[in-house]
Design a protein around this nucleic acid. Structure first.
Lengths: 218, 218, 218, 218
DNA sequence: GATGAATGAGCGTTCATTCAT
DNA sequence: GATGAATGAACGCTCATTCAT
């Protein structure tokens, strides 16, 4: 029956429209300042309808995050793989740049990811949804780990705990992005976000490198 | 006039007592959950009095942060200086460990520092106070820059933009601390905060090193 | 037409199934906490359908009550009648015990009956339905009246207004049941509900007795 | 200082005015239908002010109840004691009539007392307040117990568990009052509340009487 | 200077009921 | 007849801030 199909489609559209509205108001005011009323108003539905599609404010955030992470994941995957073969170094560079590009395009996702508060969020979201958010993050980390492993295998990176190294890279890039969020901190650092980001990426990669003189001997 | 002096002193004491109370309640319950009532009660003054000394809840936080940063700065200074002469590497290690120790001792400062960035903190605080917070950060950054400069001068670190390098180190350590705040992200990373922190610190320092064979080179 | 008959039957079945579902959810969660959604879900129909068969949540309750009263009435009738002839005293004892047994078996009916009196129940139900609930009560009262009348006729009860006496008995038993609903009032009274109930029943019956020496007169 | 005293007085007045407003709206709409907004509006204060004086809606109810019970208790005490010596029978009559008079004057207290829901209320009120409500009830029961004990001591009432007997009387009178709340049930019973009440009281007292012929022997 | 009573907008969430399909 | 998506008013409670005294 066409009716059923159309219904389904309309429902999905409505859901998307609520999500779109939520993205707008969460991005404009920050998650904490935004109210469910704002979201409903923006989506041009009643507040009750919002709760028909999402069980809580936090759940909306989670789905927004999930959506964003899905996108990011796709881009990381593309960055990792390439038509021609790539060195580990190149792969990390590409992954790092993809990460940066994503946050340049959707700078608010980062804030939202951070707003994903310690206690509160976890408690107010289905464990399943929470798990999804985390496993998406984990998948992202996975690409970085693969690239680092490749570097170790090829002898260009020194032997190390791969997960640890990937976590450090991740933490570093996050740290830079967050640091450079504040205009005044940016001023303090005295350079463009992109430049610091690139330099940080290179510093980490450099830090992962095998120490050449050991190869070249005394 | 002695009266005036005593007045001044009493005023300052009152102010400190409010600040002390605020630290306690903000640390115990987190900034968002704590109320101005809690602070007033703990300080044994009326709520109105709190507003006599601080223009808003956020301002109290800002002064707390300022105070905390002052402490941190002192510890960084001590870490930098030492009785015996230190290598650049050692200095960075000491600075990094001091930073970690500070947040281990006062883990809430970190959270508060982060809370500052969320909820429109900037808008609710005088530019002057905000400036102070930032210049304190800048001073902290200064110690790291000095150590890196020393390393470059002594030839153990490769030549680079010192401010940039210090910023990267700072961003990295922050990134690690924040990453490891989430219990489940911690689980994802699969190791202790302290270990990742130390590893990150070493990776950065390693990344700053001059490439040895160039010295041994032709 | 057979079709019409089947239609009728199906309609009645659906109605019953909604009523059955409502009993379950009202009993499980209490009337106030239960939602029409719960009822619909349990009955495996849509919420709209529930409103097709009953005009409001209160109406459902009214019909449930009616049903329950019907059951109770049957049990009172059985208690009244017996294979062997019974004294008035025995009949009242049996009626009283049947009443208790009913509420022990379906303690929620009592609560629901009481809930009926609170929240403006009267306003949200057709006078007709309300009338039915009341006339069922009246019928129950009838059995008690018959037993008391028998007692008077047989000279064991003193002459009195039969309806009045029955109402008193009814009020007393309700009063005990309601009193003993509150755990802490129960504690205050310091005995089991069943014991107080039985004692109240006996006190009333005792109170109805003819004063023997007047018959034996000096 | 007069200021302090006036402040205290004004505070108490405000508290009373909120209580008065609450009584009105709780009585008009029933506790469940009444909202804290209604109370605030009626008292001509802001909602926040209501919460300044009472910690929850239930607490307001509790204080209303306490107030009412206090009044009732005073009247029961007066009813019990009298200038001339009284028989046990007279005392019970007087207590019963005082109870009735109270609810005739403040018929809504009864509804409120009943609204004091099973679970909810207990959970949302300080144990201390709850205890007070209960101990007030207990005190009321005490007067009835004393009168019954007197009757037993004087040989006019048969020997029985005094607390039990008092509870039965209490339950009965409550049962009558509640029964006669509904106009239609009243119609069903076919007499005035006062008459049924009086008859019930006498029936219970009669039921407590010692059986005379046992005294008069065979 | 200090008090603390008063404010009132704001919040996330619920649910009986309606009505277009 | 049946559906179920949509509604929107309602609710108890909080708390940063103000201001008369």
């Amino acid at each position: 029956m066409t009716t059923r199909a159309r219904r389904e489609r309309e429902k999905e559209e409505r859901r998307q429209s609520i999500l779109r509205a939520a993205r707008e108001v969460f991005f404009e005011n920050g998650f904490h300042r935004a109210t469910v009323d704002n979201v409903a108003e923006r989506a041009e539905v009643s507040k009750g309808t919002v709760y028909l599609y999402f069980e809580s404010k936090e759940t909306i955030l989670a789905h927004l995050l999930l959506e964003g992470l899905g996108e990011l994941l796709g881009e990381l995957e593309q960055a990792y793989a390439a038509d021609e073969p790539l060195t580990a170094d190149e792969r990390l560079q590409r992954l790092g740049r993809a990460y940066l590009r994503f946050f340049q395009r959707e700078p608010e996702y980062f804030r939202l990811l951070m707003a994903m508060d310690r206690g509160r969020f976890q408690d107010s979201v289905t464990p399943e949804v929470y798990q999804k958010v985390l496993s998406a993050s984990l998948e992202g980390l996975g690409w970085v780990m693969k690239a680092i492993q490749q570097g170790i295998d090829e002898g260009v990176f020194r032997y190390c705990d791969v997960r640890q190294a990937a976590s450090i890279l991740w933490a570093t890039l996050n740290g830079v992005l967050e640091l450079m969020e504040h205009p005044l901190r940016r001023e303090m650092v005295g350079m463009e976000r992109e430049n610091l980001y690139q330099a940080a990426l290179e510093t980490i990669i450099h830090g992962l490198r095998a120490i050449p003189e050991q190869q070249g001997g005394a």
